[in-house]
Write a protein that binds this DNA or RNA. Structure first.
Length: 325
DNA sequence: ATGGTTTTTACTGCGTC
DNA sequence: GACGCGGTAAAAACCAT
């Protein structure tokens, strides 16, 4: 145990470097190349660096109205129609689909000739829609992502980012030699972490068809090739879930937060499993707020051993005492 | 492959309900 | 006596070199 701990913890989380002097937040506002301030250019829907001009983000969506309509005629003239596009569907939700009901636009039943025609159209429509391998690939992968995400209770925006990541992986030809499942799972794992609602590798691989080994391998690969910026998992992100799973109060959660904060100051975080820290934080906080939880219960919901909780929570309490003094 | 670190497993002793 | 808790030692897992 030296003072210069530069070990990177990856058990939970592979590729990132966690040092004692963790800088908190706001890196997002900085250019990854030169560190300059970012400015957004809404006219071109880009976010770029004020210093070196690197475009950090493209194709942002401007959700505001494009113009105003002052009377009904103008509204007719200017209005546009169509559902919003979404990356969650393999064709971004833009395709035309033929309804399965054999009804015409007025809801009347079709003649048998018409029905046969519609059946043929449906068949061909489906064939074209999923024509080339990439489309079919995407379709399957997005289905998988959706399935796993809902099994894990992940919000929509996570699925959406996962879809984007997968799409990029596909475009950059990262797929050959790897399973669709694996990459889809890795995308979801990365997306969940980027969105600040991390799920542990164990949780993810529990709902995925690929085993943990393959998942970690693929995840590493995808992150490296796509140059994804995934920060080390913040223990605090696990708190809300643990707290609610254990039926504890908000006060306990707040307490756990401050505990983890002071621990961070003391440098206890380095090289330790974020999940373990979070679990210990919850346990220690419950102790301080006189709510009853056993180490066993915490270890169950967090999937961490009791021993680890014991070790961590002692450190947490020590750190908070020295911080108070 | 190796070494250093963390986490897990398994077991033991103590106090309390 | 079962349970929660704390501690320890050895094994396993993991990452970096």
């Amino acid at each position: 145990m030296t003072d210069t701990i530069t070990r990177t913890y990856t058990g939970e989380t592979e590729t990132e470097r966690e040092t004692v002097s963790t800088t908190r937040g706001e890196e997002r506002e900085r250019c990854p190349e030169c560190g300059g301030r970012l400015v957004s250019d809404s006219e071109h829907a880009e976010t770029l660096c004020g210093e070196c001009g690197l475009v950090v983000e493209e194709n942002e969506i401007d959700r505001g109205p494009e113009w105003r309509a002052f009377d009904a005629a103008e509204k007719d003239q200017k209005s546009r129609v169509g559902a919003p596009t979404t990356k969650m569907m393999h064709d971004q939700g833009l395709s035309t689909n033929i309804g399965w009901q054999d009804k015409d636009a007025y809801g009347k039943a079709l003649s048998s000739r018409q029905r046969q025609k519609m059946q043929r159209l449906r068949t061909w429509n489906e064939r074209f829609r999923t024509r080339d391998s990439k489309e079919r690939n995407l379709k399957q992968a997005l289905g998988e992502i959706d399935r796993m995400a809902s099994a894990l209770g992940l919000p929509e925006n996570v699925r959406e980012t996962a879809s984007v990541i997968y799409r990029r992986a596909l475009e950059e030809d990262l797929l050959p030699g790897r399973s669709i499942e694996g990459v889809a799972t890795a995308s979801l794992y990365a997306a969940a972490r980027q969105a600040g609602t991390p799920r542990s590798l164990d949780e993810i691989s529990a709902v995925s068809r690929v085993d943990k080994m393959e998942l970690t391998r693929t995840y590493r690969y995808v992150v490296r090739e796509l140059k994804l910026e995934v920060k080390p998992a913040d223990p605090e992100h696990y708190l809300p879930r643990f707290v609610s799973d254990l039926d504890l109060s908000d006060e306990t959660e707040r307490m756990a937060r401050t505990l983890l904060d002071s621990a961070r100051e003391a440098g206890v975080h380095s090289g330790k499993s974020p999940v373990g820290l979070a679990a210990a934080g919850v346990y220690a906080a419950a102790l301080l707020t006189n709510e009853k939880v056993t180490q066993n219960e915490v270890s169950t919901v967090a999937n961490i051993s009791e021993v680890t909780i014991r070790n961590r929570y002692k450190e947490l309490l020590e750190a908070s005492e020295t911080a108070a003094a």
